[in-house]
Design a binder for these strands. Structure first.
Length: 423
RNA sequence: GCGGGCGUAGCCAAGAGGUUAAGGCAGUGGAUUGUGGUUCCACCAUUCGGGGGUUCGAGUCCCCUCGCUCGCCCCA
């Protein structure tokens, strides 16, 4: 009752689940490194300013979701709510642009947003992200998306959708914003309350309101795609062509407007229907202005982030994870034998076997019962008699067969049994 | 910040005002004191998230509170 619990929106990842996380992380590492992305690890907290400037003061993330505190040096700090701002800060600080070539970076770790937790949403959550800095080519957009798709496919995920849009460059957006405001203002009275607020603050976001009436009104609104200048439109065309050439299916979604201010041109989400009220597993896009905005040289960039908890949710729906069984369960009894068992365990482990050692000193019968539950293939038995003669018994649990071997030959004997040979 | 649902053992869970709070899984001990998987027996909640109230009587009804969960907003 008075025991302390984990805070709302935070979760322990228990041993039964951590195997799946490890698989996810290992797969991500493989896929990203194969595409020549290199890992970047940045601090979990940064100056509040970085996020305020990078993500945008008007966004919900900055406006009401940040974990912000003042440290003992009187600095305002914030637990990172996303990964791109920190990655870009590091990119600028360490002059990674100086190499002249494109930087492919990836990261993985916890992010923090103060929101009401629900299915697929936590206050501390984890993302895998990739950033491709230094190329404005539409091919970079395609490559970034392709790597994300590859990762999700490698994990065996099916029935995901790729939603695609272009929000154009700064001029396109400003032009469209004005068109949209002009269109919506006469309907202001019929919009839902949140949308009415956004009309002055962040009108593009009104497009993906879930309110039915607002939806109806937006159906006739001018489309962002039609407001793109010829260059932006051509560039978007090339991104689509690139995806098509790779056989990556996508659907245009002219209402897809992502919540962070830094996006330009390509915006995309990879979505699923199996995440409760959430849909997005992976979100990303191009952010050509961000590096300069944060004090670096004018640098084109594109990136994405995957929500790991959401991915885990999907992976768990696919198949029950297989618990990694131990190879050998070490049964021991009697003071001398228990002492020797420590050395035997070490010997077996050094040979590469996974060994669990019984530490209870309880009756052999009980120890075998536990051995059975552990899923071990074999028991190695050390009792008083074995201790005296410096031998051990190997019992093969599948068929109950048992042999005595010298301790020195233990590893070879188990290997032979594993191979189905007579030791 | 706002709404809905739910809190009975480590886990799943019956119980809907009337004496001792089902059952299953897991766990512990034993039948089997140096040999497992099956079986059998025993043990395993002075108490139903917490506090207050109504009542002769509360896990069950009422109020407050804490927690979990789902949804809105927004996002991964």
């Amino acid at each position: 009752m008075s025991a302390i619990q984990a805070l709302p929106g935070t979760k322990d990842i228990l041993p039964d689940e951590s195997g799946l996380w490890q698989r996810l992380e290992a797969t991500a590492r493989t896929i990203l490194q194969r595409a020549a992305f290199r890992e970047l690890r940045t601090p979990i907290f940064e100056r509040t300013d970085l996020f305020a400037r990078g993500i945008g003061e008007a966004t919900d993330v900055v406006g009401k979701e940040m974990y912000t505190f003042v440290d003992r040096g009187d600095r305002s700090l914030t637990l990172r709510p996303e990964g791109t701002a920190g990655a870009v800060r590091a990119f600028i600080e360490h002059k990674l642009h100086a190499s002249g070539s494109v930087q492919r970076l990836w990261y993985c770790g916890p992010m923090f947003r103060y929101e009401r937790p629900q299915a697929g949403r936590q206050r501390q959550f984890h993302q895998i992200g990739a950033e491709l800095l230094g190329s404005g080519s539409p091919r970079a957009d395609v490559e970034a998306i392709a790597v994300a798709v590859e990762l999700l496919e490698e994990l065996g995920l099916k029935s995901l959708r790729l939603a695609l849009n272009s929000v154009g460059d700064r001029d396109d957006r400003a032009r469209y914003r004005q068109q949209l405001v002009d269109f919506l203002t006469p309907h202001a009275a019929d919009l839902d309350e949140d949308s009415r607020d956004r009309l002055s603050r962040n009108p593009l976001r009104i497009l993906d309101s879930k309110d039915a009436k607002t939806q109806d009104i937006c159906a006739d609104a001018p489309k962002l795609i039609d407001a793109l200048g010829p260059e932006s439109a051509a560039r978007f065309e090339r991104v689509q062509q690139g995806l098509t050439d790779l056989g990556i299916a996508y659907a245009l979604d002219h209402r897809l407007v992502r919540g962070l201010d830094y996006y330009t041109h390509t915006a995309f989400e990879i979505q699923s229907d199996d995440l409760g009220a959430q849909a997005t597993v992976c979100g990303g896009g191009r952010y050509d202005g961000l590096v300069a905005e944060l004090g670096g040289p004018e640098t084109a960039a594109v990136g994405w982030a995957i929500g790991m908890e959401r991915l885990i949710l999907l992976l768990q729906q696919m198949a029950a994870p297989v618990a990694p069984a131990v190879d050998v369960y070490l049964v021991s009894r009697g003071e001398a034998a228990e002492q020797k068992a420590l050395a035997v365990a070490q010997q077996l482990r050094r040979s590469g076997l996974t060994v669990e050692m019984d530490l209870t000193g309880s009756a052999f019968g009980k120890q075998f019962k536990r051995a059975d539950r552990s899923g071990a293939r074999a028991c190695v038995i050390l009792g008083d008699e074995e201790a005296k003669t410096d031998t051990a018994q190997i019992k093969w649990l599948a068929d109950g067969s048992q042999i005595a071997v010298d301790r020195a030959e233990l590893v070879e004997a188990i290997a032979k049994l594993d191979a189905g040979l007579d030791p």
